[in-house]
């Protein structure tokens, strides 16, 4: 039985949407908003639960490996739970791609640590569901720093500009080569889909229209000063 019979064809197309982008760009907020307005399940990162994260921001070098392994195991567990409860094939929105894990590992780990990380990865043998749309939120480092300051999570205030720059580059490289799913690249610096209803509705319409290939979403509008 097609339980989504009543929805339009464009909605039926997306069953699994992933929001990605660097720290502070607003992925989780957007993912949550989409979940609530589309009644989607949320596959959301629990960054605050990672007991190593605070240590990591205090001393990256010393805490990078446990931080990374904790995230990897958490993501593996969450994605495994996702595969088990598949009765109604619900709409899902996630705020991370599993590939993100490796992307961060490459930025934060040294060579020996990375080899160990790779071995753990191989043992875990995770098969995440394939997204049918990835939304990549992009913003310059200044905007990220501003948003991190605004959301005011204590340990995040230690995040350094250089680290965000490296992450931004890593993300740009990763998505430059990304072909696994249709990709909507959003200039998140110029819109505020969380607090501005019109911005949200426009972005949602763009998400719905997006079927294949890659597209830059960069609404130019005068917003006053």
């Amino acid at each position: 039985m097609n339980t989504r019979m009543n929805s339009t064809a464009s909605e039926a197309a997306h069953q699994f949407i992933v929001i990605e982008g660097p720290i502070g760009v607003g992925k989780t907020s957007l993912a949550r908003r989409l979940c609530a307005s589309l009644s989607a399940q949320g596959v959301l990162e629990e960054g605050a639960q990672n007991p190593f994260l605070e240590r990591f921001y205090r001393n990256q070098r010393a805490a990078a490996l446990p931080t990374q392994l904790y995230f990897l195991l958490q993501r593996a567990q969450q994605l495994a739970a996702l595969q088990q409860q598949d009765l109604f094939a619900p709409l899902r929105v996630a705020d991370y791609l599993l590939e993100k894990d490796r992307l961060f590992a490459q930025v934060t780990l040294d060579q020996a640590e990375y080899r160990l990380y790779e071995q753990v990865c191989a043992k875990l043998d995770i098969h995440p569901p394939k997204p049918d749309l990835v939304v990549y939120l992009q913003a310059p480092v200044d905007v990220l720093l501003e948003r991190i300051a605004k959301r005011g999570v204590d340990y995040e205030q230690r995040i350094e500009r250089a680290y965000l720059e490296r992450l931004n580059e890593a993300y740009a490289r990763f998505f430059h080569e990304f072909e696994a799913a249709p990709l909507l690249i959003v200039n998140a610096a110029s819109i505020d889909p969380i607090n501005n209803h019109a911005d949200y509705e426009e972005l949602l319409a763009a998400i719905r229209r997006m079927k294949r290939g890659r597209l830059y979403y960069n609404p130019l509008r005068s917003r006053g000063i």
Partner: peptide, 9 residues
């Protein structure tokens, strides 16, 4: 439960 569910009240 690791997945967030939408609910309306």
């Amino acid at each position: 439960m690791l997945i967030w569910q939408p609910a309306y009240i």
